[in-house]
Amino acid sequence: MTERVRVREMFPPGHIRTPFYLRGKTGEVERVLGPFGVPEQLAYGLTANREKLYRVRFTMREVWGEAAENPDDTLDAEIFAHWLIPAED
């Protein structure tokens, strides 16, 4: 069974590798990778937490809504664990 996750809709300052356009969006975990050092800490020379990295697959319908070019096409991105919460649906 595929795991559904939601990207946290938060906007902290700093070096962040969670794209703006995916914040608040829900997708399915395509595969789990890592652990890797967290970029928010690595970018500032801090000792980085190591976290799982999720490849999350979003539908274009979910990302762009009515403006989607083809709603069933998909977008995959790598999102660190602390940016994800279980999807509520």
């Binding site: 590798r17 969670t18 794209p19 990778l33 970029p39 096409d73 998909t74 995959d76 991105a77 790598e78």
Partner: peptide, 9 residues
Amino acid sequence: RVHDSTADM
């Protein structure tokens, strides 16, 4: 399928 290389891969 678009793949956005956002992190370590």
